[in-house]
């Protein structure tokens, strides 16, 4: 990002920024992000999270990679240590929210209809229904989709990408936008690894590194409780570092209104 005015023109793309224009027209230079409105709301959401000391995580994966199962197992493992809440995005049904609430964790379902992703405005609306006060971690379970969710900042602190052993190990190369943004990659359903000889974790990791992403990669099975500790440790570290950052760098945006007075059950 340009340090002078905050626009998105970098040395790599500056050649795109200036071109002659035909006569007879007025030209207005903008040089701004196309999703500026979404990004502003995302920043506002992040200010809310920072103020309440809440770690906000955006979980992204293909449908059926085990996002909800991971949240169920995480709830079971951490419910006596940390207070958690979940915002779940799905095209239809309240099924995932019901599963999470059954574990004693407040969950708010956003049904997007035909929309293939969550955006910052949907999360902002949801924050009126979720109590952030006293919360440690807010999980945002995005719509199962490896394409669209990657383009929309929600205000999260970290991105969590899931890739199951029943998928292709070349998915980071096939979906570079999403996997490039991941802060941790979880290889899920690792209990099925013996039945899935074609999936080579080393190949998945190489594809991730080729996206210049040094995010840790952990194999786990939420259903069988295998490999969960690395993930739980990562959560504790992320929570500690986000809280330390929020304390040392007070947000310059002060949310002008309160969120999180009501608890959705």
């Amino acid at each position: 990002m340009c340090e002078t005015c905050g626009c998105s023109v970098t040395p790599g793309n500056v050649s795109l920024a200036w071109r002659p224009v035909p006569h007879g027209t007025t030209t207005v230079d903008v040089l701004g992000r196309l999703l500026a409105a979404n990004d502003r709301t995302a920043q506002h959401n992040r200010a809310h999270f920072d103020r309440q000391g809440v770690l906000a995580l955006n979980l992204m994966s293909a449908p059926g990679s085990g996002k909800t199962a991971l949240l169920e197992a995480t709830a079971d493992a951490l419910m006596h240590e940390l207070r958690m809440a979940v915002i779940v995005g799905d095209l239809e049904t309240e099924n995932d929210a019901l599963r999470i609430r059954a574990r004693g964790i407040p969950a708010l379902q956003i049904t997007t209809g035909s929309a293939c992703h969550l955006d910052a405005h949907m999360i902002h609306d949801a924050l009126h229904e979720i109590a952030l006060d006293g919360l440690d971690i807010l999980f945002i379970e995005n719509v199962g989709n490896l394409v669209c969710p990657a383009s929309f900042d929600l205000g999260q602190h970290r991105n969590v990408a899931l890739l199951s052993f029943t998928e292709g190990d070349d998915k980071p190369a096939k979906y570079p936008v999403l996997f490039r943004s991941a802060d941790v990659v979880l290889l899920t359903k690792s209990d099925l690894a013996p039945h899935m000889p074609d999936f080579e974790p080393a190949r998945a990791e190489r594809a991730l590194r080729e996206l210049a992403n040094d995010a840790p990669m952990h194999a786990l099975s939420a259903r069988k409780g295998m490999g969960m500790q690395s993930w739980l440790d990562w959560l504790h570290q992320a929570l500690a570092s986000v809280r330390a950052a929020a304390r040392s760098m007070p947000s310059n945006e002060e949310p002008s209104h309160g969120h999180g007075q009501r608890m959705a059950r």
Binding site: S8, T10, P11, T26, L31
Partner: peptide, 22 residues
């Protein structure tokens, strides 16, 4: 080396708008 930083390629920018009053 794979440890690189992106300097171009993730742009989603509105560069400019041409307008006509006529």
């Amino acid at each position: 080396n794979w440890q690189t930083e992106l300097t171009g390629g993730d742009e989603l920018l509105l560069l400019r708008v041409e307008l006509s009053k006529e």
